[in-house]
Design a binder for these strands. Structure first.
Lengths: 205, 205
DNA sequence: ACTATTTTGTACTGATGAGTAAATTGCATG
DNA sequence: CATGCAATTTACTCATCAGTACAAAATAGT
């Protein structure tokens, strides 16, 4: 706890304290979802891991579906930010795509990104599922756009952008399943290495 | 129904009838698991889809965990068979690897293969999970072996076999999530196309 | 101090669904 | 015919867990 803080919080601080608590709930939840799976995790478990009780979670988040939705929204938000960032970079289309992909892979090894990949949309309720799909579509569109630009400027080999996007995404999503965050391999290196492989291909040149 | 069959089945026939019923249960189950997710599918639902009752399922399979385990075992069996088949082929290491990969991708768009990918091991009970992991490890080993052989004979570019296997597997697993079996794209073509992309890479040559 | 609002906890409800007990039918065989 | 086994059903039990009602602190505003 921060002992330098005034015991008389301003409205501003209060809002941020509330937000911090909400975030703490989401972080605890996402870690448990990733470790044990959404359906194997009860909100009682999540609450217990924070030393609070279930209704407190319901005070900050409406229901379990929303807890999951917020988690994946954070992950997807990071991905969308990465796409925005890549879009405004200098260099060839291939350069921009690779920059995006490295970041994309890194995010997928992070708490919220992992949750995005590991969450099958069947887990969400219909409206949340629609929102989830919508955001994922957006990432996919962004990735395809970068591919198309790369092909256009000749920095990428011509190919079907849709299939290329699925192939690349699949390869870079998979670490969400196998990468051990506690392991020795750094996500950054891993991400770079994988993107490199995808660019070069497996045939000798 | 087959009206030419004798109404006095031999022990042989009886065994095969029993096996056929068991298979029908597994097929109905796997399709529902794939469509709605394991946890969203009750065995009552599966039974209803076959016009039978839940205890009948329990007559053929011990419990829900085993139903899922049998499903993934079938999918993994197909993959292992594909690896065996590829291993005994003529051609370079790259040829054998590609043959395996195409088949691998196809299987992942099929009922039982899709289930293998979509099933997080958290869904299974500890012992089944161990069995599941063991079989998946075997596929991984086989894939790595093919990669190593390809590098050895110069038909593949040198690379880290472990990372290559994860990258390739990720790319070819992903269709289990996005490919629509009812859609117009044929799994065979798709598989070939994806493997081709992975071999060539995205950089122009 | 007094009231309203926010935060948090205790103790419930209610639904869902895995798994089972026991009865039923059919067939096979001594 | 009696006995036993396989297949199948109806009608349960029982545990889990999402979600809620309501009370009790804490906090803020007046």
């Amino acid at each position: 706890m921060d002992l330098t803080a005034s015991p008389f919080p301003s409205p501003e601080e209060k809002r941020s304290v509330r937000a911090a608590k909400r975030d703490a709930v989401l972080r605890a939840a996402v870690q448990m979802f990733n470790a044990r799976g959404f359906h194997q995790t009860s909100l009682d478990d999540v609450a217990a891991s924070l030393g609070i009780s279930k209704p407190t979670i319901y005070h900050y988040l409406g229901n379990k579906d929303q807890v999951l939705l917020e988690c994946v929204k954070i992950g997807l938000g990071q991905l969308i930010a990465a796409a925005e960032d890549a879009r405004t970079r200098p260099g060839t289309g291939a350069d921009r795509l690779c920059a995006f992909l490295v970041r994309y892979a890194e995010i997928n090894m992070d708490d919220f990104g992992r949750c995005v990949i590991r969450t099958g949309d069947e887990a969400l309720m219909p409206e949340s599922r629609e929102r989830f799909r919508e955001l994922k579509r957006r990432i996919d569109t962004d990735m395809r756009t970068l591919i198309i630009e790369g092909i256009a400027d000749g920095s990428l080999a011509p190919c079907d952008p849709k299939l290329a996007a699925f192939t690349i995404a699949g390869a870079l999503n998979w670490p969400a399943r196998w990468h051990d965050p506690a392991g020795s391999e750094s996500p950054e290196e891993l991400a770079r290495h994988m993107v490199d492989m995808l660019c070069r291909g497996f045939q000798p040149r």
